[in-house]
């Protein structure tokens, strides 16, 4: 079957789209780095802090319950 001839955009339009896409890629790469940092904090920093706070709370509650009130 006869091939259709390709129809491309003008060079000007193609370059305009390319520049906008490059801008978006850079923007999303920065957001991606921010999101990775947030995930790292959520994975390695937040759980020990929460665990320490919970332990402290339990210890304090036990002390209040067990120790005699003067």
């Amino acid at each position: 079957m006869t091939e259709l001839y390709p129809i491309d955009t003008s060079e000007e339009v193609a370059e305009r789209i390319r520049r906008r896409a490059h801008g978006l890629l850079a923007e999303h790469a920065e957001q991606g780095a921010g999101a990775r940092a947030e995930r790292w904090v959520a994975r390695w920093i937040e759980p020990p802090l929460v665990a320490a706070f919970a332990t402290g709370l339990v210890v304090w509650a036990l002390r209040v319950a067990v120790l005699p009130i003067p």
Binding site: P6, T9, H28
Partner: peptide, 30 residues
């Protein structure tokens, strides 16, 4: 790009719309 643009142009029959949609397609990719 040439294939997507050619397809959009032959589907929409309008060069301005085809270019607008081509741009949005590749911006979505980005």
């Amino acid at each position: 790009r040439p294939r997507i643009h050619g397809w959009l142009l032959r589907t929409t029959r309008d060069r301005a719309i085809a270019e607008e949609l081509l741009q949005e397609t590749f911006l979505r990719l980005a």
